[in-house]
């Protein structure tokens, strides 16, 4: 028999396992990583989303490496060019081949393909480094909410009773407070920077995950294999982590992917309000914020970061939708 029996495709019931009855292939369940991946491959929109997310993540990774290990080689090469002295930088240049109210007759040049901002900084370079922040805040804030929300929801759902009541009422209290107010209050208490923005947004979205996983846990905990584990003397902690959570995780995974996009948007909004990344850090939300005074003379300044946010969020949402379809057996075929 082929050594690889982990993928459902390899099970044909004909070799080696024909002891009881050869109908094994009919039992072939639609589960597993490979099945999910193969479903996504057939879904062009999810594939497009995956492409966007992959490209954005690659850019973010590269920007991170560039910033930490290469001493901003990218910015040095494309902005601090010998011929482009920052002191003489032209502000609000239009993109290549286009004009704006400030430069009605001189189209932009390839030196600044997307134009410059109100301080003469290259927008392309700032977008590039902004990707790093957008992706990081999206993933980290979602990660915080995912881990804590999963724990809270799983514990509440598994134990039930007063533990459930206490945890879920606390989570609902969090839900009852308007989201932005909560995060801004959090940052007012701890300080205005990106780290607290991520933590604040993460904590504020815990209830979303807690409620989602709890509803799954309530049905999973009644499964026989949970009782089998209890009958074998497995500790509650291991039952929750090894048996309950993995079996309740599919909807949470979908929600997490969608939440990354939402959180990018929220933190861009916080930056726009001045509660996220502080200048001079390049972040998309903060770029939007400084561009709003120049909407008429140079609309391009605000279009680019807006477009970047749009594309990234759409990318994550497409992946999330694709995952949901792939993980939901009712939608298949």
């Amino acid at each position: 028999m082929a050594p690889d029996t982990s993928t459902p495709q390899n099970i044909d019931g004909s070799d080696g396992n024909a002891v009881d009855d050869p109908q094994e292939d009919e039992f072939e369940a639609r589960v597993g990583l490979w099945y999910t991946v193969s479903q996504i491959k057939r879904d062009p929109t999810a594939l497009a989303g995956l492409g966007i997310v992959a490209v954005m993540t690659a850019i973010a990774l590269f920007a991170y490496i560039d910033g930490v290990f290469l001493d901003y080689w990218f910015a040095q090469t494309f902005w601090y060019h010998p011929n482009r002295d920052p002191a003489q930088a032209e502000i609000l240049l239009p993109p290549y081949g286009l004009t704006n109210q400030i430069y009605p007759t001189e189209p932009g040049t390839l030196a600044h393909p997307l134009g410059t901002d109100d301080r003469g900084r290259d927008i392309a370079v700032r977008l590039f480094y902004g990707t790093r922040i957008a992706i990081t805040v999206g993933i980290v804030s979602t990660g915080i909410a995912l881990v804590l929300g999963t724990l809270v929801g799983a514990v509440a759902g598994y134990y039930g009773g007063w533990i459930d009541d206490a945890l879920m009422r606390a989570a609902e209290t969090l839900f009852a407070i308007p989201f932005l107010v909560l995060v801004i209050a959090f940052m007012a208490a701890f300080g205005r920077n990106l780290t607290y923005a991520m933590i604040g947004v993460g904590i504020a979205t815990i209830p979303t995950f807690a409620r989602l996983i709890r509803s799954r846990v309530l049905s999973v905990r009644e499964e026989d294999y949970i009782e089998a584990a209890r009958a074998a003397g497995v500790r509650d902690r291991n039952i929750i982590l090894r048996h309950i959570v993995p079996n309740s995780f599919a909807p949470v995974l979908v929600q997490a992917t969608l939440q990354v996009g939402i959180n990018i948007l929220i933190i861009a909004g916080l930056s726009f309000l001045g509660y996220g990344a502080q200048p001079p850090t390049a972040s998309w939300g903060q770029m939007l914020s400084s561009s709003r005074q120049y909407l008429l003379p140079d609309p391009w300044f605000s279009i680019w970061p807006g477009l970047a946010i749009l594309i990234t969020v759409v990318g994550f949402n497409l992946v999330g939708d694709g995952l949901r379809d792939a993980l939901d057996p009712r939608i298949n075929n």
Binding site: G16, E24, V31
Partner: peptide, 19 residues
């Protein structure tokens, strides 16, 4: 269970009810 070394790494859905 025949060939237990290989079947060790199988998932439950790859087994029949009797198995």
């Amino acid at each position: 269970i025949p060939e237990p070394e290989e079947r060790y790494d199988s998932y439950p859905h790859q087994f029949s009810g009797g198995m």
